[in-house]
């Protein structure tokens, strides 16, 4: 082997250990899951013993009204959660983006919910939602208002509220960071140009924050498709299937119904959905970069 060839190989040799670990830690389980999704697979069997059934699991799921309902719940949950978190998080950031004494303490307090373990959040809210001794109904009662069946007929709304409580801070801190890195003088120019506070938000701040907001929103969306613990603790998916989001259904299919193949297929559906979202995010970034590059090229041309 010539020296030049050895030199060319060097980077790959350094990368090899990482590549091996990647293959073992990432690709192998993923491949295992995809392979398993083509089989009628019971937890008592090894994957080799399980019968190969082709696309049967996928087809069954596609025609399964319960799966579809679960998918619907997931989509609904993700949509409402992300929408409200964006509105509230960005709103709070706009409100608290000023230098008043004690503001940094307030900001720190706002991000506390995010630091609490999901299981604890679930338990907390479950007790607060309790029909008779929970905080909410007791408060309503003391105000002379009728009590609400939080985790019963309004279960989906209730879990959505809990998630909003926990994850709005995420959007809040990222929007705040985006706001504080906006060019100060452009905002001053807008004030001189005659923009009111609302017009500054609408015409200057929001458009300039948009790239950050889009990425943040997508991150939250991807996360919302995978939430499990909070809902598991609060409602266990019930009543009926009203809060049974996909992640929960997958875990139950595997453990209660002992259908690993179906659970794997369901995971793959979820994975495909997330993949589409992630690719969307990548595409967005690529488009942005391409645009920036084009702009730069144009600028260099006529200097």
């Amino acid at each position: 082997m010539s020296i030049a060839r050895v030199n060319r190989m060097t980077p790959y040799m350094f990368m090899a250990p990482a590549a091996v670990i990647m293959a073992i830690a990432l690709i192998y389980p993923l491949g295992y899951m995809i392979w398993g999704s083509f089989r009628a697979w019971d937890p008592s069997q090894t994957i080799g013993e399980a019968e190969f059934v082709g696309l049967k699991n996928y087809v069954t799921l596609w025609n399964d009204p319960n799966f579809r309902e679960s998918l619907g719940v997931t989509l609904k949950f993700a949509f409402f959660v992300v929408t409200f978190e964006l509105i509230i998080g960005v709103g709070l950031a706009l409100l608290l983006d000023r230098n008043i004494r004690g503001m940094s303490l307030l900001r720190t307090m706002f991000i506390l919910p995010m630091m609490i373990a999901p299981v604890v959040v679930g338990l907390m809210w479950r007790y607060m939602y309790h029909p008779t001794v929970g905080t909410f109904n007791r408060t309503l009662e003391s105000l002379g208002l009728p009590s609400v069946d939080w985790l019963g007929s309004h279960a989906l709304m209730s879990v959505i509220i809990a998630d909003i409580w926990q994850w709005t801070p995420f959007i809040f801190i990222l929007s705040l960071a985006a706001l504080q890195s906006l060019p100060r003088s452009a905002l001053e120019a807008a004030r001189i140009d005659g923009a009111t506070a609302w017009q500054q938000i609408w015409y200057i701040k929001l458009p300039l924050m948009m790239p950050v907001l889009i990425v943040t929103g997508l991150l939250r969306l991807i996360d919302a498709f995978k939430v499990l613990e909070v809902i598991l603790v609060m409602t266990e998916g019930g009543p009926g299937l009203s809060t049974e989001i996909l992640a929960l259904r997958i875990s139950r299919t595997a453990t209660e119904f002992r259908e690993l193949g179906v659970a794997a297929a369901m995971s793959n559906y979820l994975l495909m959905l997330l993949l589409i979202l992630t690719l969307g995010m990548f595409a967005f970034q690529r488009i942005q970069e391409a645009r920036a590059a084009r702009i730069r090229a144009a600028a260099e041309e006529d200097v």
Binding site: S185, E188, T196, Y203
Partner: peptide, 30 residues
Amino acid sequence: LEPKDRDLAMVFQDYALYPHMNVAQNISFA
């Protein structure tokens, strides 16, 4: 008075253009 009520225009050291608007929109914003 607020800046907008003082009937003045200002040119900043760093120009303070609105990065998301094109030149025409920048000029016509007020």
